[in-house]
Design a protein around this nucleic acid. Sequence first.
DNA 1: TTAAATTCCGAAAACGTTCCCGAAAATATT
DNA 2: AATATTTTCGGGAACGTTTTCGGAATTTAA
Lengths: 338, 338
Amino acid sequence: MNNHVTIKDIAKALGISTSTVSRALSDAWDIKRETRDQVLAMAKQLNYRPNINAKNLQNKRSGTIGIIIPEFVGSFFPNVLMGIQEILNEHKYHMIITQSSENRRQELENLNLLQEHMVDGIMMSITIEGGNEDTYNEIIERGLPMIFFNRCPKNVRASKVLIDDCLMAEKAVEHLISTGRRNIYHFMGPENLEVTSKRAQGFRNVLERNGINPAGKIIPSGIFIKDGQFAMSKMLAEGGEMPDAVFCFNDPVAIGVMKALKNNDIKVPDQIAITGFSEGSMATVVEPQLTSVLQPMKEMGRQAAQLMIDQLKSERKLSPKTICLDATLNIRESSITA
Amino acid sequence: MNNHVTIKDIAKALGISTSTVSRALSDAWDIKRETRDQVLAMAKQLNYRPNINAKNLQNKRSGTIGIIIPEFVGSFFPNVLMGIQEILNEHKYHMIITQSSENRRQELENLNLLQEHMVDGIMMSITIEGGNEDTYNEIIERGLPMIFFNRCPKNVRASKVLIDDCLMAEKAVEHLISTGRRNIYHFMGPENLEVTSKRAQGFRNVLERNGINPAGKIIPSGIFIKDGQFAMSKMLAEGGEMPDAVFCFNDPVAIGVMKALKNNDIKVPDQIAITGFSEGSMATVVEPQLTSVLQPMKEMGRQAAQLMIDQLKSERKLSPKTICLDATLNIRESSITA
DNA sequence: TTAAATTCCGAAAACGTTCCCGAAAATATT
DNA sequence: AATATTTTCGGGAACGTTTTCGGAATTTAA
């Protein structure tokens, strides 16, 4: 049934040895142009397709990079993937993509799977659960290159690509300040992510710089629409002092907040200004359009992939590098002063 | 550097043959419990990881299913992927995911890549360009199972999983009729997709059934927000008779249409009712919320994967099967009578 | 013309598995 | 006690490549 034509078939058809065929196909130096062309022609004629397993078994390399992302949904990771694919393809590498579903155990399984597939490197963004740092270190110790992007673990000696979350948070909050808001809250993300503390830090910095005490203004929420909606609804239900602006951990949370506000007939931005973070395709689709921080998603993928390529081309182990990319604060209706 | 421990190392450490180790690891019948346990223990101790390339080379199977989707972005394909992954993992298969970027040549390359990787089957959704039908047939002829989902080619003898686009289009348009709309337009998708003609057919059916001539009411648009926005803007610019409802090919087109209408201060649904199709995460986020057809995305992935598993477990070639899934028309603000 | 260098190619080992076949060890049957 | 049967294991080929090494065949130098 599955009748694969091999290098032997080509050799037999031309009455030459498999070594010669192999040389021809890999365009080696010690082969006559003439025979090389014959081989290539015959290969095309027989519809030869190299067996990548035999190749990899021999070469001890797979030409494959393993990828682990938390989720396919949303626009962030898909866009990063496109950037990664762009660079990897240029260098004749391709990728096996797995998703951890924000699950620590699944992430471990994926890590194993990728290693069994003899990937030449692993690029990943960690789950919000975290906790697999020891495994990362073990893998790196064994000599397999790892690159982290966006969500990076602490205490792991590996290269990373990220944006300056603290700085961008500062810019966002400063923007709110500049429009006259003073009673600003932060709806915070998952505790154990580095980006969570970075963004919260930026928030605190600006408030303190403006003589405002951030104590009690940081509300734990989450990463999903429902998280933002829940947190805001709860705040409304409890009554008490209302913020005049909310700096949200990300866009879904911001959208959830806006939903809750709409349900209570509170006007955005007139009564409360909202900003998101890590802008996705929804920012310009919601009403009012959402002020958010646009991350260079494709570029992040490209840079991360380039780091991987650099490591793969290099003989020795390169020392870890952290690339910090510029992001853009896109100011839109949700935060403009009425 | 990359110091992989092999079956030979285990054999040497225990003073037995590699055959025995292999048998132990694959839990064969002709092995003593005792030795099997020893091997397993030693394997764990040495941190043995099977070389999947050697395994696949020998077995002539990879335990891998190749996937080709047009795009990562949007919520549709990611969700389908999750359904696929769920079933495949259950059966110890995993997947290599590639994206064609709606590009015919890229799709061909992916097809080649997957075959070089000796995938045991291919599951895919075709590009809007189409044109690779001959290749599909050739692959199927060669005995490699293929399953199509959502976007399926015509004239290819392979199993498919889809929804009844014609029926759901009818339901959507009937809903518009039932709210008193009569001058209904259809903003159509890419010509060569089967779903395009199906949805357009449903549109025509309902109009004719209600004594309305559909001629001239079908406007070619596309699949993106900008396509819908462009088509609607053009219609507005040209003046002429305005529709009182638009049945859009998909949600992005519908959102584009709503943007164009908003720019011209035309109220939805008061002046024009809008429906989308193939609901994504944006439907409930836009203002007004969008009436759309919810496809069972995960279920579609599950069913498609199950078809693949069935084919793989079967000795003989199963005859192609088409699974038609139920979808739901979610009626929301964008089409409710004022 | 012979020796030396160069160009090109084939034989064979290797990569890490699986599996067939036969043999040894253990057990059961006469 | 001798044979038959079962259980368990090792040898070695095979999967499709790449690569080392040596040896023809051809060209250049002496």
